[in-house]
Design a protein around this nucleic acid. Sequence first.
RNA 1: GGCGUGGUACCCAAAUGGCUAAGGGGAUGGUCUGCAAAACCAUUAUCUAUCGGUUCAAUUCCGAUCCACGCCUCCA
Length: 485
Amino acid sequence: MKIYNTLSKRVEEFVPLKPGKVGMYVCGITAYDSCHMGHARAAVAFDMAVRYLRFKGFEVKFAKNFTDIDDKIINRATKENRNWKELAEYYINEYSEDMAGLGNIKPDIEPRATDHIPEMIATIQKLFDRGLAYQTKSGVYFSVRKFEGYGKLSGKNIEDLESGARISVDEEKQDPLDFALWKAAKPGEPEWDSPWGKGRPGWHIECSAMSSKYLGQPFDIHGGGADLIFPHHENEIAQAEGACGCQFVKYWLHNGFININAEKMSKSIGNILTIREIRKRHDFEAVRYFLLSSNYRSPIDYTDTAIAEAALGVDRFYEMLARLPSAGTSNQEPSNLGKIEKELSESLKTAKDRIIAFMDDDLNSSGAFGVIFELVRQTNKYLDGKTSDEFTKWLSSKWNELRSAFTSIFGVFGSSAQEYHARRKSIATTSKGVDSALVEKLIAERKDARKSKDFAKADAVKKQLADLGVELRDKPDGTTEWKMK
RNA sequence: GGCGUGGUACCCAAAUGGCUAAGGGGAUGGUCUGCAAAACCAUUAUCUAUCGGUUCAAUUCCGAUCCACGCCUCCA
């Protein structure tokens, strides 16, 4: 399998450091506010990566951190007159709920910065020992110029960075590029003891210290949003490699950004879309399908229309699923197949390998979805024509097999059609304020009208329902199903 | 200014040095249906931003141009 490594800027063959095992660390959140679609995208992208690696048979140890001490947390806590620890705890819980709601698998380890102060202090001490750190009145800093190779991840060189006008000049620092390892305590702020006086850790040091602690050094994969490449990940490398004298991470993976209506999502524009807000309006499978329908490295544009279109794709899948008999499957492929069966059979047999081929090529999820939908069309085509019990049974069992693989890789298409429709209906009626009881009552009225062949009345009721956004489907057995358009 | 990414049909989005340029959504016509819905069939890119080059052959490789976007400051 191949993955794109930001460090080499090319797609590389993935070879773990220890055969069969993968250590993976992804930057989580700073717990000071509700999480937004950007967090959702990063989380889903790396969730897919972990799921796929496990699908391939790797034993994956997956860690994702929580930054629970930071300027932003302190500022917000002060502003809202809350305890900083309680605030962080609150948003960590919210994040965990959001992630579960999106169908992400919980990381094996979720280390928190404040639980690892001694590890960070030890790392900083090593940097002192190696002459890469120095102390000033405001704290301890990393001496960027003394670390050979600074800029290798982001492709920047020190001179370019130096000449950039946006670097703030701090009199205390020996060089404007130097960054804080330990911040000296300010009155009223949380503080810990250290060999350099009371204070708190800088932002970057936690990831270097915690990832190395749980995954060793070097470890296989480090992921995060593309915006973290510089300075965060660059600094992580400098600290970890500076302290250890060995390589930090073999493969660096970065997910692309999400825009909102073609605009960058930012607090100043005021277009932050939180995960919980989205989850009220859309089913998680639609959100996941949307996020996975383009390459994890490309920027994507969020619009409500885009999610609605993704939802139609998911609908299409479950419409097909509902047509397959759930009971009575067979592993025996019948012989004597017609042309349509033969074609379908061929596709069913090759689907898994085609999906794997796409995913092996830098996690090409969109290609993998294409395989599934091609199969959906062929399956529908078969079911529309002459069917045979034997073939249908075999078809069902092949789909079960495929679906279980697909679900384990992407975390979608794993519900039953009934579950899916119930969920979708509940979200749609709630978000649009439609009363299910009223809908049922109107459907009953229409049924009576149809029975007495009063089609004018039946259509009038139908129109009334359509105005509510309700779409009807008359089943052959005389019952009527409905869903929200 | 430095570094980087991308421009594929009405929209989203894969792929590829030559074979019908996936898939989803939309649109139009048809089959089915009391009417619909769903599903299926047909049509919807003689062509992959533009201009050059390499090649027997390029959308795919190289160069230039134009356009869009990201990072260089906290940020998924």
